[in-house]
Amino acid sequence: MIELRHLGPGDVDWLVERHAQDYARDEGFDASFGRLVREILEAFEADHDPARERAFIAWEDGQRLGSVFCVADGAPDTAKLRLFLLVPEARGKGLGKRLLAACTGFARDVGYRRMVLWTHESHRAACALYAATGWELVRSEATVSFGIPVVEQSWELDLSPCQ
């Protein structure tokens, strides 16, 4: 059975390693990506508000399978989705949907009215999941990041209660 846990011992190093390894292999990202992931995680550990920010780490049989984070994004009503990751062997089993639902559900439950995220067009499965769950693509821009040409995307989700 897959369990969703908060950030615990060893998770930061695992997340940095998996992000760096998977994105270097799959996308060709350079080492600056792993450094960015570490900075994000260290800031989260040092300064997150547990009442409004949360990590979701998926575990099964003693193995980590993925993650997603809900963090504040400056404005009191806006959350940011970060560090959405599934290891390759966990893909195609509905875990991405479950992680995304847990993250957006948490954001809604603690009072955020909007959620944003930043990703790359090449993450086709994740982008398809965002589109299928009500996220709106609000910006798409070609640039160079992590040592390669990419198309960065910004997405938003309205978390307001249905009228």
Rank of each mutant, 00 (worst) to 15 (best):
R108Q: 08
V12Y: 05
H123N: 10
S67Y: 07
V150K: 00
F69L: 12
E152L: 07
R124K: 14
G28N: 09
S122D: 08
A24D: 07
D109C: 08
M1D: 08
A46G: 04
Y23F: 02
R18P: 00
G105D: 09
D26L: 09
A132Y: 14
I2N: 03
V110S: 01
R113I: 04
D61N: 09
C127W: 12
R98Y: 12
Y23M: 01
E39L: 04
R91Y: 09
V12N: 07
R64H: 15
L36N: 06
D49N: 12
E141C: 15
T119E: 11
E60H: 13
E136W: 05
I40S: 00
Q21M: 02
L100R: 02
L4D: 14
P149R: 10
H123C: 04
M1F: 05
L95M: 06
L95E: 10
Y130M: 09
R113A: 08
V116D: 15
R108A: 09
E3P: 04
Q21K: 01
R82W: 13
V150C: 02
Q163P: 14
V16W: 12
A20C: 05
D73L: 09
A43R: 11
V110E: 08
A126M: 11
A72C: 06
L129A: 05
P76I: 12
G94M: 05
D77W: 14
Y130A: 05
E152R: 01
G96V: 10
K97E: 10
H123S: 06
C103F: 04
A107P: 13
E3W: 04
T104E: 13
R18K: 08
A101S: 05
A142C: 09
S145M: 13
G111N: 02
A132E: 14
G8R: 06
K93Q: 13
R64F: 13
H19W: 06
R38F: 14
H123E: 13
D109W: 08
H123P: 00
E53H: 01
V138W: 04
R5Y: 11
F44K: 01
G28Q: 05
A107Q: 12
G96L: 06
Y130P: 00
L15Q: 03
Q163D: 13
G94W: 14
G62N: 00
R54W: 03
F69I: 12
F56I: 10
T143G: 07
D158C: 08
S145P: 02
A58V: 12
S154G: 11
R52N: 10
A55Q: 11
E121T: 10
E39A: 04
T78W: 00
S145Q: 15
L99A: 04
P88I: 03
L129M: 13
V71D: 13
A58Q: 07
L137V: 13
R54E: 06
S32R: 15
R38E: 12
R113Q: 14
G105T: 10
A75H: 15
V150F: 12
E152I: 10
M1T: 11
V37D: 00
E3H: 04
L4F: 11
G134Y: 05
F56N: 00
A20Y: 04
R91P: 02
L159M: 15
L83A: 07
L65N: 08
D26P: 01
P50F: 06
F69Q: 03
C70G: 02
S154Y: 14
Q63N: 12
E141V: 13
S154W: 15
W155E: 01
L157T: 02
R108F: 05
E121S: 08
G134R: 09
D47W: 09
V151E: 11
V116K: 12
